[in-house]
């Protein structure tokens, strides 16, 4: 996250007034990030339909700032892994994640993306969870999760982003 990530806290304390300025900047930048998450349209299975439903008329995620579904990973902030990740798909999921610009977040939607779901035990081709490939911030359980559940997960992600700190404790 560049300058905004991992500033040495001891260094910040030495400069008079710096913690106050930094806290204000933190609040403003975090609010901006949390309320303008662009989602990568990346549907894999049934969950993609519920993702569409969450974006369509009744549930309308635009209310919370998920206004723009980005078709290209390069302008997306949030990847929702909506469905089963198979072995053949692994390099592509990795590449999509790598192509996204920082700061980036991942939601694992549905039991397939969490653990392999109904294919977890005895299939040869299914990856047992998206977190084996990319770091996951929020898990939304369900098969598939209702749109309300996805919205709840996204609001939880906003909360998480709003709490993020720019300073880091010195090791």
């Amino acid at each position: 996250m560049g300058l905004t990530d991992g500033l040495d806290e001891r260094l910040v304390r030495k400069v008079p007034g710096a913690p106050v300025v930094l806290a204000a900047a933190e609040w403003a930048i975090n609010a901006g990030r949390a309320n303008a998450l662009w989602t990568l349209t990346f549907g894999l299975r049934c969950c993609a339909m519920e993702m569409m439903a969450a974006g369509a008329a009744r549930y309308d995620w635009a209310r919370f700032g998920f206004e723009v579904p980005a078709a290209s990973p390069r302008r997306a902030d949030l990847m929702i892994v909506a469905g089963t990740v198979t072995t053949k798909m692994v390099p592509l999921v990795r590449r999509l994640y790598a192509q996204m610009a920082e700061p980036k977040y991942v939601i694992a939607m549905g039991s397939c993306a969490i653990s392999g779901g109904p294919f977890a035990y005895d299939t040869y081709s299914v990856v047992k969870g998206a977190d084996k490939i990319v770091p996951v911030d929020i898990y939304v359980p369900g098969c598939p999760p209702r749109p309300e559940a996805l919205l709840d997960g996204m609001l939880k992600l906003q909360k998480k982003i709003k709490q993020s700190k720019f300073t880091a404790e010195a090791a």
Partner: peptide, 14 residues
């Protein structure tokens, strides 16, 4: 094709 192949037909045997 095959990017979402999850082996359902094989699973059915179990």
């Amino acid at each position: 094709v095959g990017y979402i192949h999850s082996g359902v037909e094989k699973l059915c045997e179990n």
